[in-house]
Design a protein around this nucleic acid. Structure first.
Length: 311
RNA sequence: GGACGGGUGGGUGAGUGGCUAAAACCAGCAGACUGUAAAUCUGCCGCUCCUUGCGGGCUACGGAGGUUCGAAUCCUCCCCCGUCCA
C-alpha cells in the first residue's frame, strides 16, 4: 500500500564517500540521512568513526548517530528497531530517508529482518566463555554439536563468538538455530528500496584510507581519545575496540609508539574495507558506481538512478 | 687485524643429516558470517605440469666447492651484518 514510499541506501566500504554522497542527495531530494554504522551509534567517539561534524551537514538532519553511551551494549536487533522507527518518522514528515550503510549486518537486519531469536544473555555468555577458556574452544563446539548438529556443522570450531551465540539461542529458545531461521524473518515492509553501491578501484581506495587516517589524526583524533579516557570512559568498552581507538588507547598508555599505531590503523582499516566489499558484493539489486561518493560524476549517476526509479 | 654471534620463503623467526617446499606469527589474496559485526572465523599463500593426486617436475635456506645413498643442517674457502678486542 505504501509502496510509493522510498528508501535510498548508499552502501560501500569505509572511506568510499558515502556520507558526502548522502548529503548531496539529501539536498537535492528533500532527504534526511540515517547512519547504518555500528560505531557511529556511540556518543563521544567522533573523529575515528567518521561522523560528519554538525557544521558540515549543511542543515541535513542525521539520525542514529550518538544514540548510546559507550558502555551500553548495542546490537543488530536494537538497530533494526530504532531504524524502523526513524524511517517511519522521516516518511511521516514527507522526507526521503537516505541510509549510509557501512555495517553489512545492520543493513541486512533492517532490510531482511532477523529471525525471532532471543536477545543475548550476558550471564549465559559469561558462563560459556569461561568454560571455553578453561576447556578450550573445541569443547564449546562439542556442546553445540550435541545441542544443534546443523549449526555446529556450519560454524567453525574456532569461531567461539558464533558458537556461543548458537548455543545461547538453542538454550534460551529451546530450538536449534536452523529451525528458527526456517520460520523466516520480519523484513522491512512498505518501502521501495533503492540501493546504490560505491565500489571505487581498490588501489585508490587504499590510498584514500591511508591518507584519511593521517587527516583524522591532524584534526585531533588522538586528543579525542585522551579526552575519552580522562572522562573515565572504560578503556575496554565496546567502541574502544573499533579501528584506531584501541591503538591510540595503547599509545596513551605508553604501550605503542605513534608511528606504529598509525601504520597499524591504516592496515587494519584496509583489511576492514576488504571485508565490507566481500559482504556487500552479495547484496542483491544494487546499482553499482565505480567511483567515490564525493565525485560529481558519482552524484550525477546516483541522481539519474533515483529519478529513473520514480516511474 | 683478532674473537665471538649471525646470514632461512614478502617480513619477523623456528629448524642443526632423511618424517622439510621448510614450524609459528605477520603481511598479501580469497571467502564465511541472522543480536559483539570497525567484531569473529575459514581457506590459499616458491614456480610449473597434468590423468587434480596424501600426484609429477623444477628452483630454494648469503656464494662457490666438498663429505654423504641423502645437507638449510657437517667440512673448506669467500662475501656480507652485529657485538667485543686491537
Amino acid at each position: 500500500m505504501n509502496a510509493h514510499r522510498r528508501l535510498v541506501v548508499i552502501l560501500g566500504p569505509t572511506a568510499s564517500g558515502k556520507s558526502a554522497l548522502a548529503i548531496a542527495l539529501a539536498e537535492r531530494s528533500n532527504g534526511e540521512v540515517v547512519a547504518c554504522d555500528s560505531t557511529q551509534v556511540y556518543r563521544y567517539f567522533d573523529i575515528g568513526t567518521g561522523k560528519v561534524p554538525a557544521a558540515e551537514r549543511r542543515g541535513i538532519p542525521h539520525h542514529l548517530i550518538d544514540v548510546v553511551e559507550p558502555d551500553e551494549v548495542f546490537t543488530a536487533g536494537e538497530y533494526r528497531r530504532r531504524a524502523t522507527e526513524v524511517l517511519e518518522a522521516i516518511c511521516a514528515r514527507g522526507k526521503l530517508p537516505i541510509l549510509t550503510a557501512g555495517t553489512g549486518l545492520y543493513l541486512r537486519a533492517l532490510l531482511d529482518g532477523l529471525a525471532d531469536a532471543p536477545a543475548r544473555s550476558e550471564e549465559l555468555r559469561e558462563r560459556l566463555r569461561q568454560r571455553g577458556a578453561r576447556r578450550g574452544p573445541e569443547r564449546l563446539h562439542q556442546i553445540l554439536r550435541r545441542l544443534d548438529r546443523e549449526s555446529a556443522s556450519r560454524i567453525a570450531p574456532g569461531d567461539t563468538q558464533k558458537v556461543i551465540r548458537a548455543i545461547e539461542i538453542r538454550l534460551l529458545s529451546g530450538q536449534p538455530v536452523s529451525a528458527l531461521h526456517q520460520r523466516g524473518r520480519a523484513r522491512l515492509e512498505g518501502f521501495q528500496v533503492l540501493k546504490i553501491g560505491l565500489m571505487p578501484p581498490r588501489a585508490t581506495l587504499y590510498r584514500r584510507i591511508d591518507q584519511r587516517v593521517t587527516t583524522m589524526l591532524e584534526s585531533g583524533w588522538l586528543d579525542e581519545v585522551k579526552l575519552l579516557l580522562d572522562r573515565g570512559i572504560t578503556p575496554t568498552s565496546k567502541p574502544f575496540e573499533s579501528l584506531g581507538y584501541s591503538q591510540f588507547r595503547d599509545v596513551l598508555a605508553g604501550k605503542m609508539v605513534l608511528n606504529e599505531a598509525i601504520r597499524q590503523i591504516q592496515q587494519a582499516t584496509r583489511q576492514y574495507a576488504k571485508r565490507q566489499v566481500t559482504w556487500f558484493r552479495k547484496e542483491h539489486d544494487v546499482h553499482w558506481i565505480e567511483g567515490f561518493g564525493d565525485e560529481a560524476a558519482t552524484a550525477a549517476d546516483a541522481l539519474r538512478f533515483i529519478a529513473a526509479a520514480e516511474e
